[in-house]
Design a protein around this nucleic acid. Structure first.
Lengths: 252, 252
DNA sequence: ACAAAAGTGTTGAGAGTACACCCATGC
DNA sequence: GCATGGGTGTACTCTCAACACTTTTGT
């Protein structure tokens, strides 16, 4: 691709309509006119068949002591996803975490202190990858059950609601559930993850196993997990399989 | 929901692990340490069975004369989607435009002048809603065929690629195609939109019509469009129908 | 032997896919 | 009457959903 610094000639299919723009373009806003830019991270996990999310207590006013998503301001030369990984690393020790951008929230009064636009990320961590260390109590960080949340600061309740929606949606057509499980898991554990997140406790066990095994998204091991009854075979996610399931078309 | 300003007592399911965070939280960055925040808009339309996108020629260095997405800086008290609608209104006269947030791009060097984080929106306009007016030539604004784009400024080529992906994806499981058509349209025109965007020229006409008519997403009128041959019945989008088609589950 | 959880097949209904010809209009 | 694009039905396959009992282990 050649770089045409003086403007590329319109291709044969281009149709140009020169017209006035209503308002002249604004210049670069003065420093004190710039919105602040933050990242927040919604960190989900599933522990004891409960969907949980990590919240921190805000150490300072406003909202002192109120629960909020972990987050912070973006540094001048820091990529957004790096800022999100930094937040993630400050609160968990998980490696290889699934992280994706969720949405950018920018209502002018979402933070009473100043105009803060927040790029929110969305992380899924497996409970066995969490290396939680006892701390000095300066900051309280807790896993909260997603279906029984405390009051939260800013617009974080709406963000959490949106994140849950996205999680459900992703679960229905991709294989992200594995990000919430240990490397080896039983099919019942996998099914429980679906049941908890989709809030459908009665998925049919036979149909579930049939589908999972048929599309080869999971490979059996020769190891078993001791449970209350008959031991359960352990499986692992087949990384070779395509991550996304074919989405059905609305139209043929 | 009661607001507990001093911190809510953890619910019975909450599991807290107080631990140190590795790095102390950063304070509010000084004004000159703040990234700039912009919005850009990818405006798609379908004209003459071609998927087209609106680009403007940059009037000033860097990239003077090079094509770029319409965009601008976010004002201090301006909501993000309002900024996007403002950009849209500066370049088209379309009303009731479909607009959604696409993604936020924030690589540190995407703009050579300064750190600019851009919240990119994604708009679908119908060609009959465009009131293009001849202008004074100060700014050149053109519809470019999506499959034959000129060189573009910044990271806009990657943004356009991502937007196309999202458009295709959305088209497969929602009814956004109507946003690209006039209020009344023939089924062939609807099918053409799918064929052009999905790049699958040979969708089966019978199956397409069967599906569209069965799920009632479209209602017939008593009017017809004159074409080269037999006149084609005009349809309109049934607003009462749910906008989203049921997505198929990866798992039961 | 019994409690607890794992594992396993079949059938019927509906959706998707492939496929070829007649119809209404303008010239 | 012919060129142009609009409109229609059927048969096969595959996937999804509903449904209950046997197996293996620990106590």
């Amino acid at each position: 691709m050649d770089l045409a610094l003086t403007g590329a000639p319109p291709s044969s299919y281009t149709s140009c309509m020169e017209y006035t723009i209503r308002e002249p373009p604004r210049g670069i806003p003065a420093p004190e006119q710039r919105p602040l830019l933050a990242v927040d991270v919604v960190i989900f996990t599933v522990r004891e068949t409960t969907l949980q999310v990590l919240l921190v207590q805000r150490p300072e006013p406003p909202f002192q002591g109120v629960w909020a998503l972990p987050g912070g301001f973006v540094q001048l030369q820091e990529p957004l996803d790096e800022a999100a990984r930094r937040e993630l690393a400050e609160h968990t020790d998980a490696q290889n975490v699934y992280l994706e951008q969720l949405y950018t929230f920018g209502a002018p009064n979402r933070d009473p202190r100043a105009r803060v636009v927040s790029v929110v990320y969305f992380a899924l961590v497996s409970p066995d990858h969490l290396d939680l260390r006892p701390g000095n109590g300066l900051v309280s960080t807790c896993w909260h059950p997603m279906y029984n949340l405390p009051p939260t600061a800013f617009d974080h309740a709406a963000i959490l609601e949106y994140a849950l929606q996205r999680l459900r949606y992703k679960l229905e057509y991709t294989a992200v559930a594995f990000q919430l499980l240990p490397e080896e898991f039983t099919l019942s554990e996998l099914q429980d993850v679906y049941a908890v997140i989709l809030n459908e406790p009665s998925l049919d066990k036979r149909n579930f196993r049939k589908k999972v095994l048929k599309n080869g998204i999971v490979t059996p091991t020769n190891r078993f997990r001791e449970t209350g009854g008959r031991p359960a075979r352990l499986y692992r996610f087949s990384k070779s399989q395509p991550f996304e399931g074919r989405a059905p078309r609305l139209f043929p």
